[in-house]
Amino acid sequence: MNRKLLLWLPFGLCALLFVVFFAGLKHPDDHVIASQMVGKPLPEFTAGPAMPGQPGTASSDFKDGKPRLLNIFASWCVPCVQEIPMLIRLKAAGAEIDSIAVHDTTADLTKFLSQNGNPYTRIGLDEGGKAQIAFGSAGVPETFVVDGKGTILYQHIGVVTEEDMPKLLAMLEQAK
């Protein structure tokens, strides 16, 4: 083998390492773990009623031909508070929003919803995170767009902001 080439090999490997690191810095880890369930039918789940007088959420509810949003939230989650006004506006714009509350209790939820408002049609209490894991959801808040046949179209990770609203509404419209 060409000895000269061999001697430059370490330099080459170092350059490669440099490129990898540089690329890594340009695309920093976003710490977002996206669900693999997007594009797939809803997983089977049942989350019993969280609030008296309001139904719980189950996969069977999503096959009535009506596209809707499924919000995963919790009363202890600080950013979820910011999101509620946006969800209320989405509801006013015609979106139907079902929800699953994780690691939560009826008492805490009652307080949370009376303080911030209740945009939800259904609120299911997720026992042991079963539904959350079934959705491939890695945290709260997250919002899934589900079409009328019960297929997950899109996953929005984090707080729904002003800018996200047109997109979510458009997706719901398209899914009709």
Binding site: R3, K4, L7, W8, P10, F11, C14, A15, F18, F21, F22, L25
Partner: peptide, 21 residues
């Protein structure tokens, strides 16, 4: 730090390739 890494390590390895023969 990446720039420092490039300068020191890259420099030393280039020196290595040039001088070690």
């Amino acid at each position: 730090i990446l720039a420092l890494l490039g300068i020191y390590i890259g420099g030393a390895l280039a020196l290595f390739a040039l001088r070690i023969s």
